[in-house]
Structure formats: structure tokens, C-alpha cells
Simulated assay, not measured.
Amino acid sequence: MSAGGELRFAKMHGLGNDFVVVDATAAPFTPTAAQLQWLCDRHLGVGADQVLVVDPPGESGVDFDYRIYNADGSPSGQCGNGARCLALFIARRGLSDRPQLRVRTSDTRMMLRREADTVFTVELAAPELRPAALPSTLDAVPAATYDIDVPGFGVHRFGLVQLGNPHAVTLVDDVDAAPVAALGAALQAMPLFPASVNVGFLQVLDRGHARLRVYERGAGETLACGSGACAAAVAGMLRGVVDDDVRLALRGGELRIAWSGSLSSPDVPIRMTGPATHVYDGCLQWPNP
């Protein structure tokens, strides 16, 4: 669907990171950026951080393809909270009754597994630790941290992790006092990150527990960011400040992240476990582009 007509959707969220989810397995859904912006607008449309679209599989070995759009209409390659909601959506709509699914985004594949009624584990591909893969113009070999001079904020130390989306993660003493919006926007605007970057602010409480806020590209700060939580956990593990199985408290709730890789052996999938919530099903008149 790209012009006028009825759009059926579900409103869902993962720890407050909220989504409009659309089933395009039977009919194509080809929205314009303006239509997506309207749909995500919290005053004029439904309101959401992102729009998720379930497509038929585009290759063998995959159960569904999975498109992600940010609130500004731009595409995204990954969304961990969205993936859990996608799994619940597929089950509720009767699109599959399999307890474990493989889905493909524009950038990666993921495994989705149901643990309980509304609790799911998402197994993401191994993180890419080369700065050039974010992409970044930083000319450096993979390292646990990089010192970056952010205009207006001076030098901050970041871990860089590519997980379908690019992430930069910095440690803070108090996540509530961190300049999330200002520093996040400043880093995103730097030519160092040609495709922008999601910015995570990680406060370590102990080796098994940390707090996190994420300033996402195309959406601003959200209540939770699944891929951002995975990236923050990896960054913390590489710095040696958290264990390889850690609970992350975000503003919308808690996620559990497990990864047994290292800087020299990063090719290990990441497992993220957390809830998904169905809010309501809806139907609206889709505007002309």
C-alpha cells in the first residue's frame, strides 16, 4: 500500500520503545517518508518510535523478512526491542506457530525464540568492531575504546560497535545527570560518522548490573533500545567493567544481555532476553503521499 486505503496495524512496545507493526506478507506495503512521519507523529498520527513491517521471506532459510523505519522516515537495519514485538505479532496474527523463527533485515539475520507467554530471546549476529564498519572515518584497528573530541564537549572515550545499526557507547558516573540529548546530537552531527550513530550512556552499578540511556539516530532518546543495549553490554564487556551476562536497566525496563566474545574473537552471537507488549490493534485511513 502506498496511497489511500485502509491500513491495519498493531501498536506494540518493548519496554516503552513503541512501534506500529504492519503485516505485508499478503499485500505489499510501500510507504513514503512523509507517510511514515505522519504515522509516527504523536499528535497527528498513531505515534511511535519506529514502524516495523513483516514481509514474506526473500531467500531460503528465512521465515520472514523484516523492515524497520525510524520516526523520521529513514530506514534502519536493526531493532532489538522491535524484534521481540515482531515475534509476538507473528504469533498473535497466526503467521507462524513455530517457537523459533529466523528473520532477515536489510543488514543482518536474527533468531527469535519464545521463552514464555510474552518473553522472547533475540539472537543477533556477532558484533562488528571495526570502526570503518559503522561506518566511521576513524582510521583505527578494533579497540575497546577510542578518544573522540566532540565539539563543545571536549574529549570523551567511546566504544564503537556495529550491530546492524552503528553505536557509540560512553561510560558515565550518573546516567540521570548525563547530557544525553546534547552530547548525543553533537556526536551524531560529526563527519566522523557519515551515517550518523546511536549514542549510549552506560552507568555500571556492579559487574552484573548497569543502567543505560540511548539517544537514537532518527528518533532521539527512547525509553529503551534493544540493539543499543546489546552494543552497550559488548562495550562494557570489552572494557572489562561488566560480566559476559549482564542485566541492563533502561528507562522502560530491564533487558538481559549475554555475549562470550572478545576483542580478538568477536564472532559470537549476542543473546538479548526481554518482554514484548501488545497494546491494541487498529485500522486507519492511509493518506495519499
Results as ranks from 00 to 15, higher is better:
M1V: 04
M1Y: 06
S2W: 09
E6K: 05
L7Y: 07
A10N: 00
K11I: 09
H13P: 00
L15D: 13
L15N: 06
N17A: 06
N17H: 09
F19N: 04
F19T: 08
D23I: 08
A24F: 10
A24I: 05
T25Q: 02
T32N: 02
T32E: 11
Q35A: 04
Q37F: 01
Q37W: 09
L39Q: 04
R42K: 02
H43K: 06
Q50M: 05
D55H: 14
P57E: 02
R67V: 03
I68F: 07
C79M: 12
C79T: 12
A83I: 03
A83K: 02
L86A: 13
A91S: 12
R92L: 15
L95M: 03
D97G: 15
R98G: 01
P99W: 05
Q100T: 15
L101M: 15
L101W: 03
R104N: 01
T105Q: 01
T108N: 06
M111F: 14
E115G: 00
A116H: 15
T121K: 14
P127V: 10
P135Y: 04
S136N: 14
T137S: 11
P142R: 14
A144G: 01
T145L: 06
T145E: 08
T145S: 15
D147E: 11
I148V: 13
D149C: 03
P151I: 14
G154P: 12
G154H: 07
H156V: 13
L160T: 07
V161G: 00
V161A: 03
G164T: 08
G164S: 09
H167S: 09
V169T: 13
T170H: 00
T170M: 14
T170I: 00
L171Q: 09
V172L: 14
D173M: 15
V175G: 03
A177F: 07
P179A: 06
V180G: 04
L187K: 08
L187W: 09
Q188E: 08
Q188W: 13
F193S: 01
S196Q: 15
V197N: 01
V199A: 08
F201Y: 10
Q203M: 10
R207Q: 05
R211W: 09
R213S: 03
L223C: 15
C225L: 12
G226H: 05
A232Q: 00
V242N: 00
D244H: 09
D244K: 11
D244Y: 10
D244I: 01
G253P: 02
E254G: 14
L255P: 08
R256M: 02
R256G: 15
R256F: 04
A258V: 10
A258N: 01
W259E: 10
S260M: 06
L263E: 09
L263D: 13
S264N: 10
S265C: 13
I270C: 00
I270W: 00
R271G: 09
R271F: 05
T273Y: 07
H278G: 10
V279D: 11
C283S: 13
Q285I: 15
P287E: 07
